[in-house]
């Protein structure tokens, strides 16, 4: 009799733990691991018809251009000369076929993007992609 009273007082936490673990698994699975190249300060211009990217190319260098005009590569601000050097180095490591992805802030003047383009050209590279944010409205 005393035993059953003790059982009634206990809070049923099993289902709560189940839910909490499911939430943790959800966040672990959906968290983007490939964040090294994405600058959160860059708000991309929106695009409807450009092809959405599901997987980034293996050999790539991602250059971010912030609204402040800072050119970031590998989370370090770069001048045109240092960016050229860094891209040359990346090219030597990654080999032919390396693509430079330019993530320019939508409200940044093209002047800064042009600096990146010049650095890419000076580094002897020719494959470049302009990045935009997919609106997902293409099929709607």
């Amino acid at each position: 009799m005393k035993n059953s009273k003790t059982e009634n007082i206990e809070t049923p936490i099993t289902s709560m733990i189940d839910v909490v673990f499911l939430l943790i698994i959800f966040f672990v699975v959906t968290s983007d691991i490939d964040r090294e190249s994405v600058d959160d300060k860059v708000k991309l211009a929106k695009s409807t018809y450009l092809e959405p990217v599901t997987k980034l190319p293996k050999n790539r260098a991602v250059v971010n251009v912030r609204a402040s005009g800072e050119i970031m590569y590998g989370a370090i601000p770069r001048s045109m000369a240092t960016l050229t050097g860094a891209l040359k180095q990346a090219h030597a490591i990654q080999g032919a076929g390396m693509v430079v992805i330019v993530r320019g802030h939508g409200d940044e003047r093209y002047e800064k993007i042009d600096e990146v383009v010049q650095a890419v050209t000076n580094a002897g590279l020719s494959r470049i992609k302009i990045s935009a944010q997919d609106t997902g409205l293409k099929d709607k």
Partner: peptide, 18 residues
């Protein structure tokens, strides 16, 4: 995880010739 979670932003790329 709740605090650090960010909504995934789908990007689109356009190859251009230099």
């Amino acid at each position: 995880f709740i605090v650090t979670h960010k909504e995934e932003q789908v990007e689109a790329h356009m190859a251009i010739n230099l």
